[in-house]
Simulated assay, not measured.
Amino acid sequence: NYVFTSESVSEGHPDKVCDRISDAIVDLFLGHDPQSRVAVETLATTNHVTLAGEVRCRETITPEMLEQTARAAIKDIGYEQDGFHWKNARVDVLVHSQSADIAMGVDAAGNKDEGAGDQGIMFGYACRETAALMPAPIFYAHGILKSLAEARHSGAAPQLGPDAKSQVSLRYENGRPVGATSVVVSTQHAEGLDQEAVREIVRPHVLNVLPAGWMCPESEFYVNPTGRFVIGGPDGDAGLTGRKIIVDTYGGAAPHGGGAFSGKDPTKVDRSAAYAARYLAKNVVGAELADRCTIQVAYAIG
């Protein structure tokens, strides 16, 4: 019997904005050349985005194309604020060609298969706590923010901004989750909205996502604990690609190899091997061979 907590962040969280931009650039390159090599990091702060990394593509991808891809990602998230605006933000592109030394180890040639882009360890995990075969705390933390984002994009909650975080603590009895002991939601909001008003906007989303009867005590339901969250996104806190690796995986319920996913083509095994290991773990649990399954793989570069 124990309590376990996981957090999630919204698409407008500064680090997630950077993940989104980096992955949009991966999509851009793979759309022009499926054999592209991409490792692009993004930094975001007040009205400023910097792209840095190494790429290779059989077609010409110009800095202007990278800039427009970044702006489109920011616009889709919904940032049109004084401190961070898809149209007005400065975008610096510091992207150059992939190292020939790395390419030599990765590329298939002659009798050599395509090699791993780096050494490292990766994990995949699955369990029976939810229908998605994900640990319950991260599953419900994600669900709350997904619900809030859908309401914001549809116009049902126009007072909310893109930046948000959630945190769900669940009580386990005999190793199974049975209810929430506390729920924390911080969400960016329009000027003039007080803490209690934000609380009541958020409440139905939490109630709808958690199973019936799982809601935490009212005294443990924390919404915007600082009392105000108008300044948000990269204007409120700088963002970086790859800084939410636990949010991206299992919320701390399983081991993590330390490598991020976003901004990387499939030769970067931090991404592709973690996806493959998750797929295999899901099949082990889905086939009822185990209640939970952890798979680890390890690579040498090349």
Rank of each mutant, 00 (worst) to 15 (best):
A276D: 06
A260K: 11
C216W: 03
E196D: 11
N208V: 00
R199A: 07
A260P: 10
V230G: 06
A238R: 14
G213M: 08
G213E: 02
K264M: 08
T241G: 10
N224Q: 12
E200R: 13
P204K: 01
G263F: 01
A254K: 13
L210V: 03
S272V: 02
R203V: 01
G233H: 11
G233D: 14
N224F: 04
G236T: 14
V247E: 06
W214I: 04
E196G: 00
R271Y: 00
G257H: 12
L240C: 13
F221V: 00
R199C: 06
A212P: 00
V223C: 01
V269G: 03
T249S: 13
M215T: 10
E196M: 04
R243E: 11
K264I: 12
T226I: 06
D270H: 02
I231P: 07
T226L: 11
D265W: 03
G258P: 14
N224K: 05
V230Y: 07
V209N: 02
P234C: 09
G257S: 14
E218D: 14
R271E: 09
R228W: 10
G257F: 09
I245L: 15
N224L: 07
F221L: 08
T226M: 03
G233L: 05
N224P: 13
R271T: 04
I231E: 15
D194H: 02
D248Y: 06
V247G: 03
